[in-house]
Design a protein around this nucleic acid. Structure first.
Lengths: 144, 144
DNA sequence: TATTGTTATACTCTATAACTATA
DNA sequence: TATAGTTATAGAGTATAACAATA
């Protein structure tokens, strides 16, 4: 098993690195830092969440998060609202402008603005989805 | 085509995010920054390269690279040697200690210290490798 | 007392521009 | 003049610890 296992791991790592390089380039070109984009992507298509939850999902510690949110708020992309049931909590969500930015920017970054699947057949899609679906399940199980 | 295309993209993005979260956690636990690990991983299993080449591969600009290399040199993990043919160039490579660190740390990060393929059959491996191999080719072609 | 989020601090990463030395 | 790498600078991300407000 060892040999084959390492081959898959290396291939996975190479794809990740290539993908991250492209997405990093796109994110920077669009004027965002990695952390800022991570927050926009995490808040996109959600009703919002508390700072605590946002920090857990993005792996940004609370002290750091305050600063990153300050800058996003200054750009008019996110807003903070004090919670009603628990007055300690802040509820963070995208502003309409933030939503528009998400809709515009997210596909560009994920697609790298370039990655196309022109030559993909139905069978190719099926294979990719099946392989990634199984992998995703492993990654989720392992993240506990 | 649109629907299916988006489904693959989203799945890919989810795998990437899960993978990056785990690897970020591992890198930090091991006492490295993202950039430092990126450099160690890029230099690992190579005879070394110039600062220029290292900067192009890691997307770290030259001014930044100097500082990151300074700190890795201080930790005794990399060394810089003035080139013989072109005295302007610096040749950067891992020290023996850096190599040992790479051998120890790289698998832990890539495997997340946890990701196992216990339940993978030969067919699963083949499918993952085929799908990722095709994807890799697309990512390489698009990075030009 | 415990939890949520902010503030303060020190260090690292980041891009950019000016600089040194080689070519 | 052009290129490889350093230095200087200002802004952003990072973890940590101390703090205020709320529970």
């Amino acid at each position: 098993m060892g040999e084959r296992y390492l081959r898959s791991i290396r291939l996975l790592s190479e794809c990740m690195q290539l993908f991250e390089q492209s997405s990093t380039r796109t994110v920077r070109k669009l004027g965002f830092t990695h952390s800022q984009f991570d927050i926009i992507a995490t808040l996109g298509n959600t009703p919002g969440m508390t700072c605590k939850e946002l920090g857990e999902k993005t792996l940004i510690t609370k002290g750091t998060l305050t600063g990153v949110l300050d800058r996003l708020e200054q750009k008019g992309l996110v807003q903070r609202e004090r919670g009603n049931d628990d007055r300690r909590q802040l509820f963070v969500k995208l502003t309409p402008c933030g939503e528009a930015t998400f809709d515009d920017v997210f596909p560009k970054v994920v697609q790298n603005g370039k990655l196309r699947f022109n030559t993909y057949t139905d069978a190719d899609y099926l294979q990719l989805e099946t392989a990634l679906g199984k992998l995703k399940q492993h990654l989720i199980d392992d993240s506990q």
